[in-house]
Design a protein around this nucleic acid. Sequence first.
DNA 1: CTGTTAGCGCTTTCAA
DNA 2: TTGAAAGCGCTAACAG
Lengths: 336, 336
Amino acid sequence: MNIKEVAKLAKVSTATVSRTINGSDKVTPETAERVRRAIETLKFYPNTNARALGSGRSSLYGLIISDITNPFFPELVKSFEDIAVQHGQEVLIANTNYDPHRMELCVSRMLQRKVDGVAIMTSEIAEHLIDEFHNRRIPLAFLDTAVPQKGISNILVDYASGVDAAVGHLTSLGHKAIAFIAGPMSLESARIRKRAFIQSMKRNGLHLDLQLIEEGNHRTDGGHEGMARLLDLKSRPTAVIASNDLTAIGAMGAIFERGLEIPGDISIIGFDDIELSAFTRPALTTVRLSRQEIAKMAFRALYNTYQSGAVKGAEYPIQPTLIVRKSTGPRPAGKH
Amino acid sequence: MNIKEVAKLAKVSTATVSRTINGSDKVTPETAERVRRAIETLKFYPNTNARALGSGRSSLYGLIISDITNPFFPELVKSFEDIAVQHGQEVLIANTNYDPHRMELCVSRMLQRKVDGVAIMTSEIAEHLIDEFHNRRIPLAFLDTAVPQKGISNILVDYASGVDAAVGHLTSLGHKAIAFIAGPMSLESARIRKRAFIQSMKRNGLHLDLQLIEEGNHRTDGGHEGMARLLDLKSRPTAVIASNDLTAIGAMGAIFERGLEIPGDISIIGFDDIELSAFTRPALTTVRLSRQEIAKMAFRALYNTYQSGAVKGAEYPIQPTLIVRKSTGPRPAGKH
DNA sequence: CTGTTAGCGCTTTCAA
DNA sequence: TTGAAAGCGCTAACAG
């Protein structure tokens, strides 16, 4: 079952069938109709491998993520697939599992399948792997890389405004002693969020107590430990901002263990707005980072770059938004 | 950059390069070594599209799921990818979004990419779409389909034993009035679970009160509503088993809203063991359905079927296990 | 607007 | 054990 059979049935050449499939405008409507009927009756599906070989374009876009079980990613993956399919493109997903070796494997998988572009939504990628793509003129899109370079597109989250919204919300509730549980400092995006917090505190004219800045690991256990240390302080904070939702959820556990109430004793704000955050008790106030937007931007960046044959990437800004739920409340009376 | 260049550099024919790549045993170790070095220095990655075209095997396996943001799927996807990559195969993931049209699109995507097999982990698939695969001799693996047929492999979860473990756990805690919040009756696997519950109650010699069986939708809202109705009963149950974890979580919300305690007033057990269940307060006792096992079985079924050219599928059993956490406790004193 | 035909890069007989 | 060469199914000049 191939294009030849279709051509025979429709009484045209294979070229005409190909043109019809590809929506060329130089085919008479009648001919096209005949071809389409032939395709229909034969239940013919063009072989994408042959198409890719013949045209030099795979219509495949790679999506490299750290770990699909990390709640940040599922919606990102879904949105990426949605928009790709809308454009008639296919998606190749690969998990690095936070493992550099595995990342290398992911890159090789992408290269073998001759992807037309790759969205790299993890933070860890070695320079030489980027070159591998760059040398082959394969468009790349990153999320929050430090430096835009080599024609790579970059999705840039405006962390500053997100953190600002969080700090603003807390100050409007009367909080002054605001703590921050950061992510791992090995992560660029975690460093950016921490810097954003420090600047936001200054901008809001609040005293910045370095004791109130903890380092976590973007997982619940890190949040738990960081919060435990904060609670051991003689003057403990009345509000905490966490670098991501999992950290915040871990912190909530630590607070409950001490018999304290949220938000009665301590208010807490997360970052990301993963699905889980709506289900915690109390539901978590958080700064939403739209994964749908990120995915759409990343795909468009790749698709446009590939289509236009452009060599240079661009920057795409994303605005986070504060989602107020139940984990934040007024500063407790008698506290500072 | 192609196999010819490699052949030239290694001073062999393209056939020998091909054989080396494919690990043929009829290549002298020395020749093979020379070829490998050439591949290395040229940073050559064989073009999978050409390979697929030449060999008639795509080394691609499809994985159709309902919705990656449904917490049941991420771990399944990850495990499937893991095992596929271990076998040098690639994965094509497609979400149906519970939409029949979209399912049709998924099938066409699979067909175009010429997958070597498809794992269909959703419940909704039309008969004629199955034929589409069957006619092309493409192995299929299903999760909990009603009837095994047409050489399709079937991953069969032993729901009976899972539900039995749940009922047993509750009776050992003294519970007698046990309710069940089922999934949507349009779903085969939901029907099976409900039947299993009814049978288990009988086997344990417990009175089966039909009022205590509610129908949900496998989402939190359905659990919430079902539980609300149960709480309105004059003789309300002391324990509830939900058809899946999301239902259980919704039910927990309804219980809390009435000012009741878990497990003080009511014990609750879920099904699936999604990640979220460890984070609820209290942590949810549930029947774990290992997604890793399901994924591995499905892949193996497909891979083996394809490799052996077999026409008929097989059945693969999966045993669920009870995970006891904090949402179950002794029957409250004075209650029945 | 349509047909002819030479590739695309690899696999796989068939010979040697 | 190795090489030559004929496909695999489609695309894209080029010619008409």
